[in-house]
């Protein structure tokens, strides 16, 4: 697998007039994994989209080396096509790679139209699409949603193997993700409010003054 790297420098995200997080920095090298945790609405999905380059950051930069594979809540598979044909479309664009359909338990579903698949089966199909892409940087937005316990274990194994092979994985998930050596970023630590008020919802960017450094050596006596 090619060398890859993803780094966030002082990222801030603004949706509407709400600043969701600010001052977020991290750097991941080949073989490392990161879990983004935080309550609903705190900006996990927005951060994933910023890292993927699909959404501009309010401030800060993303450095990226290597191609990106994304799995989010939309499977990006044609709903009226049988699963096999829907996956084959991406296979033709990505070149022939192993999409691990068998390992993901999809072999028996290849003739079933995508719209008849369950939430968990669609998620597995999206993961098969991701594996076929052979992208070194994986961005996974809630990859465990809708998966049963076997599916969950499978995804954890896949991520672990991906990192062993030198890939990078960034996961946004509020579920416990067991992976040795995985870093965790708690997004609530990057709420721009010094008091942490309005936790999980952000707050109005225009009314909050930038944090002032404490005056040193004076005023306290």
């Amino acid at each position: 697998m090619q060398e890859c790297r993803i780094a966030a420098n002082d990222l801030a995200c603004r949706r509407g007039d709400r600043l969701l997080f600010a001052g977020l920095s991290f750097a991941l090298e080949s073989g490392q994994a990161l879990q983004l945790v935080g309550s609903n609405g705190i900006g996990k999905s927005s951060l994933i989209r910023i890292l993927a380059g699909l959404m501009p950051a309010y401030s800060g930069t993303v450095e990226l080396a290597g191609s990106v594979g994304l799995v989010d809540e939309r499977p990006a598979l044609d709903p009226h096509l049988p699963l096999g044909k829907a996956l084959a479309f991406w296979q033709r664009l990505d070149g022939a790679h192993d999409n691990r359909a068998a390992q993901l338990g999809l072999s028996d579903l290849m003739d079933v139209p995508v719209r008849y698949l369950s939430t968990g089966q669609k998620k597995r199909a999206a993961l098969a699409r991701l594996c076929g892409q052979a992208a070194p940087v994986w961005l996974l937005d809630e990859p465990l949603n809708g998966l049963d316990t076997r599916g969950t274990a499978l995804v954890m194994d896949m991520v672990a193997e991906h990192c062993r092979e030198g890939g990078i994985a960034v996961l946004a998930s509020h579920q416990q993700f067991e992976l040795s050596g995985m870093q965790r970023v708690e997004l609530s630590a990057f709420l721009p409010s010094p008091s942490g008020k309005g936790r999980g919802w952000g707050f109005n960017a225009d009314v909050v003054p930038p944090p002032q450094p404490l005056p040193s050596g004076e005023g306290l006596s």
Binding site: S67, G69, L70, D72, R74, P75, A76, L77, W90, Q133
Partner: peptide
């Protein structure tokens, strides 16, 4: 709606 355009963008 399907997210196809996002996936295409990621593939350059």
């Amino acid at each position: 709606e399907l997210g196809m355009f996002d996936q295409w963008a990621l593939r350059g």
